[in-house]
Computed example of a mutant assay.
Amino acid sequence: MITETKICSSCKIELPITSYWKDRSKPSGVRAYCKECSNTSSKAWQRQNNTRMTALNLQFRASRRGSGKCVVCKEDALKNRNVCKKHYVVDIAKASLGRADLQTVQILIEKFELNPFCIYTGEKLTLGINAHLDHILSRKNHPELKEDLDNVEWISEKANLAKNSMDKEEFIEFCKLIYSRF
């Protein structure tokens, strides 16, 4: 039976049950140490074992490289990449939007799957090969829209490099100008 309070085995302070992490294997239903003591202990362990954990993580990722599996999870990796579609989009979201929460990643994947063709060239896009996430209104001219998911679209690498920091309408006008000359 769960009691209302409990004495922490570490700090010896009587605290409400809500101050402890849940643990169904314990008779009390919570861990022996309070959340604060658990967190302090965990952070200390991480500091002491940082080099070891980094080495193990690198070893783990290296074991997955070349296996065709994502180095982060066990999903199939994209062609010529060490990560799956989801983790590739996580990396793109961090670089382009400055954030990569689950909802953002899902929206970006949905946008790609709804239209896997470049809106400028009609070229078939492939994540990890030629698909780039582009800001419709450039980050340079509209920094306030950097994280706006309605302001991004998937386009081809070549189109993105040509577009550079132009807004969508500027780029289209520029392409028309080039076309009219030839």
Rank of each mutant, 00 (worst) to 15 (best):
E173Y: 06
G122L: 13
G68R: 15
S165P: 00
V152P: 11
S180M: 06
A95F: 04
V72W: 02
K79T: 12
A32K: 14
C8V: 04
V72P: 00
A55L: 05
D134L: 02
K86F: 06
Q46N: 10
F174G: 00
L161F: 14
C73E: 11
I155Y: 06
F171Q: 08
I129V: 15
I119A: 04
N141P: 02
F174S: 09
S25D: 12
I2T: 04
A159M: 13
V105G: 06
L177N: 05
R31L: 11
K35S: 04
A77S: 13
T5S: 08
D91K: 15
W21D: 12
I92Q: 13
C70W: 03
T3I: 07
G128R: 06
E169S: 10
Q106N: 15
S156F: 03
R139A: 02
I92L: 13
R139K: 15
V30S: 02
S10P: 00
N39D: 10
C118T: 06
I155C: 12
C73Y: 04
K168V: 05
Q48H: 06
C70M: 07
S138P: 08
R52Q: 06
C70D: 11
N57Y: 14
N82D: 15
C37K: 03
S10G: 01
K168T: 04
Y179K: 14
L127K: 04
S28R: 14
N160I: 03
S38W: 02
I17N: 05
S25P: 01
Y120R: 07
R181L: 12
M166A: 07
C34M: 08
H142R: 08
L15Y: 01
E110C: 04
P116G: 14
L102C: 00
K140A: 10
N82P: 01
A77P: 02
K111F: 01
A159S: 15
L102Y: 13
W154M: 00
Q106M: 14
K86D: 09
I17Y: 04
S138N: 07
N82Y: 08
G29A: 11
D76N: 15
